[in-house]
């Protein structure tokens, strides 16, 4: 039973196309492979948060120290803002979460935004192939 794959593929293509041209593109090497963090610490978390914020063109991103330790892909969603009753403001969201992936090429760790393909080189964070 398969009712969706073509549609989803089209959507993914549309997302990818839509984001081309947003912001600057970093030169990339296609031989980079998915990676996991080897020594997560507060400095690497700070660097990753800043890199994700830059890729997603926002000011504030929060991730856990365990991010990228189990999987190279991290989904990023709007913070779960709540009303004064403790209930979500946006309880019915129709927006796809963003996705970033940790990559390694040689000894260099990179962070890639899935939709745009833009990458950020990481200076502090250490990683290994997934």
């Amino acid at each position: 039973m398969s009712r969706l794959p073509s549609g989803l593929l089209i959507a993914v293509v549309m997302f990818s196309t839509a984001f081309m041209g947003c912001g600057t593109s970093t030169a990339v090497n296609d031989r980079a492979v998915p990676a996991l963090i080897t020594s997560p610490n507060s400095a690497s978390v700070d660097e990753l948060q800043a890199a994700i914020a830059s890729l997603l063109n926002t000011d504030h991103v929060m991730i856990a120290q365990s991010a990228f330790t189990d999987t190279s892909v991290l989904s990023i969603e709007p913070a779960m803002h709540k009303d004064t009753n403790g209930r979500l403001l946006m309880g019915r969201s129709i927006v796809m979460p963003e996705s970033v992936q940790l990559l390694i090429h040689g000894d260099t760790c990179l962070l890639e935004h899935a939709k745009s393909g833009q990458r950020k080189i990481l200076q502090i964070t250490t990683c290994r192939a997934e």
């Binding site: 549609g7 997302f15 984001f19 041209g21 997603l56």
Partner: peptide, 23 residues
């Protein structure tokens, strides 16, 4: 499948409108 991807298309439209690249 046209119906199914409607939410995704909405998302694409919104984000492209701002070209924010963000979530």
């Amino acid at each position: 499948f046209r119906k199914a991807i409607t939410p995704l298309l909405v998302a694409a439209s919104l984000t492209v409108a701002g070209c924010s690249g963000g979530g």
